[in-house]
Amino acid sequence: MADMTAISLPVEKSRPIVNVSERHEARVAWMLAAPAMILIILFIVAPVIAVITLGFTDFELGYSTFKFVGFENYAELFGDRTFRQSLWNTAIYTAIVAPASILLGLGVALLIESETVGRSFFRTAYFLPVASLLVAMATVWQYLLHPTIGPVNNLLNLIGLPGPNWLGSAGTVLYSLSMIGVWQTVGFNMILFLAGLTAIPRDLYSAAEIDGAKSSIDRFFLVTLPMLGPTTVFVTTISVINAVKVFETVKTLTEGGPNKASEVLLFTIYQEGFVYLRVGYASAMTVVFLAVLVVMMFAQYRLVDRKVHY
């Protein structure tokens, strides 16, 4: 009997020992994660809550008081012609830049992948705009597209075509900005597609050839396109989100003009919030902007779940 108690005692004691080491691990983990957690709350969670709250107020910078106005900002927003124009312009810009840069990115990636000569040169050439300061390159584009002294119009004149006032007329400005946008993002998409293409096992192409896929078009539809599925969904999301976030070129080149023809979402928010200092109103716009992003991310998750499951 005496022996048995002597044996059972350490067994009972050992339980709390496990707990102590687990508690220790949890405590260490907390300490390691705490700085990140505090900063996430400080710089992401709190500001998001603040922006949603501010959206329901008439807060303006410089005034010390503000009051809650319910959905008044949102009501004003949808009656606001500038904002509606801005949403519309952003949609058009996205509808041009995203598909064009995806298709061109894919096309260039396919061409480079199937070519043996000058691969790294072409990759560098198409990628260079991604590594360049956009504000600076926008300035170069402004010169290239200058209505009278710009090389583009001089070239057009040379072959007898009238050059439009690319960035200066309301009819062309959005398309010109889109063109710059495409120029800037094709390289990025190309790199992602190239990575996707390299990840396709060579054996699949061999199998496709043996199975009777004679032409490269057959093999493209049997192997390449389906295997690029995940990359494509991914590239699409990034391209759309980046297009919606267009700001630098507009701020640098047009300031939303002429006549609000290039007014885009972030530029409008910037103007209202940081130039006119109507923080409450701009916050409501920001909430709309955030909602657009959330919807698009959600759509991507759904698409990935449904389609790209091997």
Binding site: P201, S206, A207, E209, I210, G212
Partner: peptide, 21 residues
């Protein structure tokens, strides 16, 4: 002849099954 015209069948080490089908 190209592979498709030879009427040969091949089993690969990795099986090379089309993962999306």
């Amino acid at each position: 002849l190209v592979a498709a015209e030879r009427n040969v069948a091949m089993v690969f080490q990795s099986y090379a099954l089309y993962p999306h089908l």
